[in-house]
Design a protein around this nucleic acid. Structure first.
Length: 640
DNA sequence: GGCGGAATAG
DNA sequence: CTATTCCGCC
């Protein structure tokens, strides 16, 4: 089925050679594994098999040898290599498939999907195990095209940081390796390298892509079931460009004024700043394709992921209808993927249905309306909000955004904030939430919790938000306490992993409206506990426009928060391993501070702790994956 | 086989 | 930090 090249997955180049790797500049094991997996040549040695993201090391010794060659560690053996793999467990990059020898499973949530929605793991057969990624093309394509405005230029737009990194990367091309020349290196690299280098600009896209966009974009996509539609005639925004209106940096590069330069700039690979819209939007523009197929695939993949990996459902939650509609869409074949991503299909995106997928199913339901989803521009970065006196800025920014509608919400936020000392940031809620979540999330391990996966599936969609602000916390605590079984209810289980957050999300709301995307929990959740919140959980439907806006707004914030959160998470993950609740809390606080600081790297003081403490509802952290991925993407191989 | 602690290298 | 080494334990 696929050509070799295709067959493998095609992760974005950058995925393979990121520079950003945290500690070591060298290639990371998981990247290496991915490389091997994507090459057919190595299928006898290691291959996808089983569930999504699951792969089996058919020849451990060989894999070890290859790895050793790559790292110039002749003494490498499977025992050692496996130790390294085990370190990924806590990071949630990998987990062991129990009961199957030499079989591990990638958490693509973290690694790929979110990050690279359009990546394709290989068409063909890549078994189910291959990450479910979509894409019409073979590799990822970031459809540059963009509808309208979008941004073509987005690249430049992107945050400098990212951009720069990309650039560097490009410049360098693949780096390589040990000259020893073990076949491995050379092969892999060559293949990749060639590809990469060859592509000029396109590559750039890829590079850029990765990070957040996709995911942001996705998250921003709202289904628009009746809700939105009603509320406005689709917003102007257009069908095509989902993000066109976005306030941010659109193509024009408008980086949001608000963004604090510092933040926005933060180049570090980590993406310290992802959240900010600025980033996202650009990406959206450039990378995000609206090609229906892509969307469809992506969604499906995402969905799967959700199910399989606990991706944060929130994304989907928003869109109950997510089901990737497939109205009719026959095209069985994939678009020529080969050519790269670049093609610009234009999509009128919405016109098509996303549906169809080869494998799939047809779960797709058809919907009368061609497109349910409505894409929206990313909200402003929280930073932006922050920076400007948070509020003011926010409002402005929001207004700018297409959905100017949100402006109103700002108030809300304020109020919310006001509750606490206004510190630096505005996202009180989110932060808080995020933190908690984070904690929760981190804690979890998928392995054990695997069952969760399945559970999640159900849960994700099913659960309603019942979380009261404290509720989670409590659970959290309890959970931690338990040493043993995770039998605890899914949701209680802190471990659940990242996805837990999702729980929170689950919106109680009715599908219809809620789905509209408007329904977002953040605020709602909080209000819930109380008695009647205007936006009662269940009653999303009747929500007045204002409320809707607010919700949306809040949603946006959340998202942003997520991004940050992610970072936090990452850190946490590491940290948390053992922490207890109490300890965790503290840490959380710390982390939060970091996050706020911006990327963590330094920042102004993280004062917000106070806010954080309360255990608000959590959300998801889907984005964490992104960050993580980003952070981790370091692949370069250096010579020995 | 698999896990994970501990020490350590880079 | 990530990975490598070693190693004891299940």
């Amino acid at each position: 089925m696929k050509t070799p090249a295709d067959s493998g997955f095609a992760f974005p180049d950058w995925a393979y050679k990121p520079e950003s790797s945290p500690g070591s500049r060298q290639i990371q094991l998981w990247h290496f594994i991915l490389e091997l997996l994507r090459k057919e040549e190595y299928h006898d040695v290691i291959a996808w098999q089983g569930d999504y993201g699951e792969f089996v090391i058919k020849d451990p010794d060989e894999v070890a040898r290859l790895w050793g060659a790559r790292k110039c560690k002749p003494q490498m053996n499977y025992d050692k290599l496996s130790r390294a793999l085990r370190y990924y467990y806590n990071k949630r990059i990998l987990h062991k498939t129990k009961g199957k020898r030499f079989t591990y499973k990638f958490n693509f949530n973290k690694l790929v999907l979110v990050n690279y929605p359009f990546i394709d793991m290989g068409s063909g057969r890549v078994p189910q195990s291959a990450p479910p990624v979509p894409t019409g093309g073979n590799h990822f394509r970031f459809p540059p095209s963009t509808p309208s405005e979008v941004l073509s230029s987005s690249e430049e737009l992107r945050s400098p940081g990212m951009f720069s990194s990309v650039a560097r990367r490009m410049a360098r091309g693949s780096v390589s390796d040990c000259s020893d020349g073990t076949s491995t290196n050379s092969e892999l690299e060559e293949a990749m390298g060639a590809r990469e280098r060859g592509m000029g600009p396109e590559r750039a896209y890829r590079g850029l892509l990765p990070p957040r966009l996709p995911h942001d974009s996705f998250f921003r996509v709202y289904p628009n079931p009746a809700g939105l539609a009603r509320h406005g005639p689709r917003v102007h925004p257009e069908p095509l460009s989902p993000f066109p209106v976005s306030p941010l940096p659109g193509p024009g590069g408008l980086l949001a004024p608000t963004l604090s330069p510092a933040l926005s700039m933060t180049p570090t690979p980590h993406l310290p700043y992802t959240p900010s819209p600025s980033l996202s939007s650009p990406m959206l523009g450039s990378h995000f394709s609206f090609n229906p197929e892509d969307m469809k695939h992506y969604l499906q993949a995402h969905t799967q992921s959700v199910y399989n990996y606990h991706l944060s459902p929130r994304a989907f939650l928003h869109y109950p209808n997510i089901i990737i509609p497939q109205p009719h869409r026959p095209t069985p074949e994939k678009p020529a993927a080969h050519h790269l991503h670049g093609q610009q299909q234009h999509p009128s995106p919405f016109s098509h249905s996303l549906g169809q997928q080869p494998g799939g199913g047809e779960e797709g339901q058809q919907h009368p309306s061609p497109f349910k989803f409505k894409l929206q521009p990313p909200p402003l970065g929280r930073k932006q909000r922050e920076s400007g006196s948070s509020l003011a800025a926010a409002s402005s920014s929001s207004s700018s955004s297409q959905s100017s509608s949100f402006t109103g919400s700002s108030q809300k936020i304020n109020s919310a904030l006001s509750a606490g000392p206004p510190k630096i940031k505005v996202e009180p809620i989110s932060d808080i939430e995020s933190e908690e979540e984070v904690e929760v999330t981190d804690i979890s391990d998928e392995d054990e919790l695997n069952h969760i996966d399945e559970d999640d599936e159900g849960d994700i969609f099913t659960r309603t938000a019942r979380h009261h602000p404290h509720h989670q916390l409590n659970n959290h605590l309890r959970a931690n306490g338990n040493g043993s079984s995770h039998s605890a209810p899914p949701h209680a289980n802190p471990d659940d992993d990242p996805d837990d957050d999702e729980e929170v999300f689950k919106t109680p709301a009715t599908p219809s409206l809620s789905s509209a995307g408007l329904a977002f929990p953040l605020i709602n959740l909080k209000s819930e506990p109380g008695q009647a919140a205007p936006i009662s959980p269940g009653g999303t439907r009747c929500i007045p426009l204002k409320l809707r806006f607010k919700r949306r707004w809040s949603e946006d914030q959340k998202m942003e928060a997520d991004g940050e959160r992610d970072e936090a998470e990452d850190k946490k993950v590491r940290a948390n391993g053992e922490e207890e609740v109490g300890g965790k809390r503290e840490e959380v606080g710390r982390r939060v501070g970091e996050v706020e600081n911006g990327g963590g790297r330094e920042g102004a003081g993280g004062v917000i702790l106070g806010l954080m403490l309360p255990p608000p509802p959590t959300q998801r952290r889907a984005s964490s994956e992104l960050q993580r991925a980003t952070a981790q993407l370091s692949l370069e191989n250096t010579g020995c």
